[in-house]
Design a protein around this nucleic acid. Structure first.
Length: 570
RNA sequence: GUAUCCAUAGCUCAGCUGGAUAGAGCAACGCCCUUCUAAGGCGUGGGUCCGGGGUUCGAAUCCCUGUGGGUACGCCA
C-alpha cells in the first residue's frame, strides 16, 4: 500500500527518487489526518518554495486513483485517505489466509543463530536475577526463528570455579550427605551463605576454597566426585524451573566443558603474537580499553579465556550467522574485550558476535524512602523464582475463583496466566532499564500486563465460540460492511505485525513485541466495546468475526514470541 | 580518574534514523454490566521532555557542555 503510494507520488515529484519518497511517507497519529501523509519540508529546500505552497500544488496535481478516497492538504502535509475497503482487504486477507502461520517464517532458510542465555551459576537457587536472561533469550530465540533463522539455544552453565571450592569447604564443615540429599539446593544455599559469614571472620577459609578448586582442576577424583554431585542436584532444580517456563536448550555446554579446550587457544594467541606478560599474567593489549586477561599469574584460566574458546568452538560447530549473548549490562566491558580479541585473532566473524545487555534487578526496600537493595545470594537477599511463580499462580487462582468460578481447568489456566504475568512484566520495558522488583507491582494484573493481553485473547476466543462458526470457515469476506473507526483502527494494528517483528529482531528488543501486543489488545477491547459482533445480519456478523479471528491469531503469535501461552478461556 | 548506560506526568515507562496539539498504564476521582468474559470500556485532573549552549525552516529526538544517578575498569564470573 505504501509502495503504491510512493509510486504515485514519484510520478509527480521528479527531483526525489522513489526510495526517498517511500521513507518520507508517514502514518499520522490521528486518523482525522488520513491514513498516510507526505511532508513537503524536504522539497522546500530544492524547489525554494514554502512547503505549504508545495503541498498545495502537489495535492492538486496528483490524480485520484482507485485506492485513494481523498487527498487533503494541511499545512505542509499532503494527507491521503485510502479507500477503507481496499485497506481492510490489504491488511486482513493475508492473516485470514495464513492464520496462525501469518508472519511466522519458520523456513530456517537464513542460516544459524546461536543464542547464549540463562547461563546461571549453578549450586545457587534460581532467583529473579536469573529470570531476565532466560526470558529474554527465549523470546529472542522465537523472534529469530520466526524471522527465518535456525536457532540454537545454549545454556553456558557456570559449572566451574572457586565457588565449588567454597561449597566443598562448607559441606565438610557444616553439612552432611543426608542433609543435602534431603533438602537439595536449599541446603547448598544455606551452607554457601554460612561460608561467607564465617569467611569474613576467618579469611583462611577462602584459601581452603581456592585449594580445593585447584585440586579439581588437577583432576583430583574425590573433589570431582563432590563437584559432580553438587552439579546434579543443582541441575535437577534448574530443570524444574525450565519446565515451568517452557524453556528448552540445545546445549548445556558450560564452563567445565571448555576445560580441556583452552590450551590450544592460548597457544594460538601466542602464535599470533598477541600475548604479553604483565605481572606474571598473560594479557592481550587492546586499544581504547583495558587489556584482556588470558591467564592468571599461577597459570590458571579466566572467564575471557573460556569465552574465546567457546566462541571459536561455536563457530566451528554451528557456523553461525550471529552469536548472541544475553547477559547483564555489567558485563559490557568483558564482551567488548572478547570481541576485540577475536578481531585481533583475524577472524572476520567477530562482527557477528552480539552482546544483548539488560538492566539490573534490585529489590524494593520495605521502607519506601530507602533505596532498593541489590540481589546478593551470599547475603541471602534474594527472591526465589519458585516463590514468585507460586505467588503469581495463587493470585491468579483467587481472581479466577472470583470472576469465573465455573471455568474448567482452573489450575492449568492459573499457571498459564500467573507465569505469563511474570514473563510479560520482565519484558514490557526496554530491556536495558533497571528493574526494581516490587511484589505489589508484579502481582497487579490490570492495565498493560500479560493477563490483560491473555484476557483479550480469551475474550476474542469466547466470541468466536459463541458464534458457533468454525475459525477456518471465516475466510473471504465483503469488507464493505466494516466502516466504523474502531474496526478500522483494529485492522490497521493487526496489519503492523510483520514490521513490528522485524523491528524487534533488528533491535534485539522483545519489549517491542510486548508493547505491540498491548496496542492490539487495546484496539480490540475498544472494538469489542463499541461494536456488537454477534448481530442478526449475517454479512455484518461475518465480517466482524473476521476481525475477531485475525485478533486471535495475532495475539496468540505475539504471546508466543514472548514465550507466553494463550489460553482460550480464563 | 577513565569508559559506559540512564534522566519525559505523583509513580512505572513509550516516543528518540529530526516534523502536525508530547502518548500509555498505575495511583486518585467520576461514569458504564437486562447485549458477545467489567482481568474490560469511557471521562477528569496532572508536563520547564534534568539545566545551558549549538545545528536546523523545525529539536523530547542530532552535536557540545554541565548536573544527578547506576555500572564497569588485572588475576571472580
Amino acid at each position: 500500500m505504501k509502495k503504491k503510494l510512493a509510486n504515485l507520488l514519484s510520478e509527480n515529484i521528479p527531483n526525489l527518487d522513489k526510495q526517498t519518497i517511500y521513507d518520507l511517507i508517514e502514518v499520522p497519529l490521528n486518523t482525522s489526518m488520513g491514513d498516510y501523509a507526505f511532508p513537503c519540508f524536504k522539497l522546500a529546500k530544492e524547489l525554494k518554495k514554502s512547503p505549504k505552497i508545495i503541498a498545495k500544488e502537489l495535492a492538486e496535481k496528483i490524480e485520484k486513483v482507485n485506492f485513494i478516497e481523498k487527498i487533503e492538504c494541511v499545512n505542509a502535509y499532503v494527507n491521503f485517505f485510502v479507500d477503507k475497503e481496499i485497506l481492510l482487504k490489504h491488511m486482513l486477507i493475508p492473516i485470514l489466509k495464513q492464520g496462525e502461520k501469518f508472519g511466522m517464517d519458520k523456513s530456517k532458510s537464513k542460516g544459524n543463530i546461536v543464542i547464549d542465555f540463562s547461563s546461571p551459576n549453578i549450586a545457587k537457587p534460581f532467583h529473579i536475577g536469573h529470570l531476565r536472561s532466560t526470558v529474554i533469550g527465549k523470546s529472542l530465540y522465537r523472534i529469530f526463528e520466526a524471522s527465518g533463522y535456525d536457532c540454537i539455544s545454549i545454556n553456558h552453565l557456570g559449572d566451574w570455579g572457586t565457588q565449588f571450592g567454597k561449597l566443598i569447604v562448607a559441606y565438610k564443615k557444616y553439612s552432611s550427605k543426608e542433609e543435602i540429599e534431603q533438602k537439595g539446593i536449599q541446603e547448598l544455599l544455606r551452607i554457601y551463605v554460612l561460608f561467607h559469614e564465617e569467611a569474613e571472620k576467618n579469611p583462611e577459609l577462602e584459601q581452603q576454597a581456592r585449594d580445593y578448586f585447584t585440586k579439581m582442576e588437577q583432576g583430583d577424583e574425590e573433589t570431582l566426585e563432590l563437584w559432580r554431585w553438587f552439579k546434579k542436584i543443582s541441575l535437577k532444580e534448574f530443570e524444574d524451573v525450565y519446565n515451568l517456563l517452557d524453556v528448552q536448550f540445545d546445549s548445556f555446554n558450560g564452563e567445565a566443558f571448555y576445560n580441556d579446550k583452552m590450551a590450544p587457544v592460548i597457544q594460538e594467541l601466542e602464535d599470533k603474537n598477541l600475548i604479553k606478560v604483565s605481572d606474571g599474567a598473560k594479557i592481550v593489549e587492546l586499544e581504547d580499553m583495558p587489556p584482556c586477561l588470558i591467564t592468571k599469574r599461577d597459570g590458571s584460566t579466566l572467564y575471557a579465556t573460556r569465552d574465546i574458546t567457546a566462541a571459536e568452538y561455536r563457530k566451528e560447530t554451528y557456523n553461525f550467522e550471529k552469536c548472541i549473548y544475553v547477559t547483564a549490562l555489567q558485563q559490557n566491558l568483558h564482551f567488548k574485550q572478547l570481541f576485540e580479541v577475536i578481531k585481533k585473532m583475524g577472524y572476520e566473524w567477530y562482527k557477528d558476535l552480539v552482546h544483548v545487555p539488560f538492566g539490573m534487578v534490585s529489590i524494593e526496600s520495605e521502607d519506601k524512602d530507602k533505596p532498593a537493595q541489590a540481589i546478593a545470594t551470599r547475603k541471602g537477599n534474594v527472591i526465589l523464582l519458585q516463590d514468585l511463580l507460586t505467588q503469581a499462580i495463587q493470585k491468579t487462582k483467587e481472581i479466577i475463583e472470583e470472576k469465573n468460578p465455573t471455568l474448567e481447568d482452573k489450575d492449568k489456566v492459573a499457571m498459564q496466566v500467573g507465569i505469563g504475568a511474570i514473563i510479560f512484566d520482565d519484558m514490557y520495558n526496554t530491556i536495558i532499564k533497571d528493574v526494581e522488583f516490587s511484589w505489589t507491582k508484579v502481582l497487579n494484573f490490570d492495565g498493560e500486563t500479560g493477563p490483560y493481553v491473555q484476557y483479550t485473547h480469551a475474550r476474542a476466543c469466547s466470541v468466536l465460540r459463541k458464534s458457533k462458526l468454525a475459525k477456518h470457515c471465516i475466510r473471504l469476506v465483503n469488507f464493505s460492511f466494516i466502516t466504523d473507526e474502531a474496526s478500522i483502527n483494529l485492522a490497521k494494528q493487526l496489519g503492523n505485525f510483520k514490521s513490528i517483528l522485524s523491528d524487534a529482531a533488528n533491535k534485539y528488543e522483545p519489549s517491542i513485541i510486548a508493547r505491540y501486543a498491548v496496542n492490539v489488545a487495546q484496539a480490540f477491547n475498544k472494538f469489542y466495546h463499541d461494536v456488537p459482533i454477534l448481530v442478526d445480519d449475517y454479512d455484518v456478523k461475518y465480517s466482524r468475526l473476521t476481525l475477531v479471528c485475525c485478533t486471535i491469531d495475532i495475539l496468540k503469535n505475539a504471546l508466543y514470541l514472548l514465550g507466553i501461552s494463550a489460553p482460550t478461556q480464563m
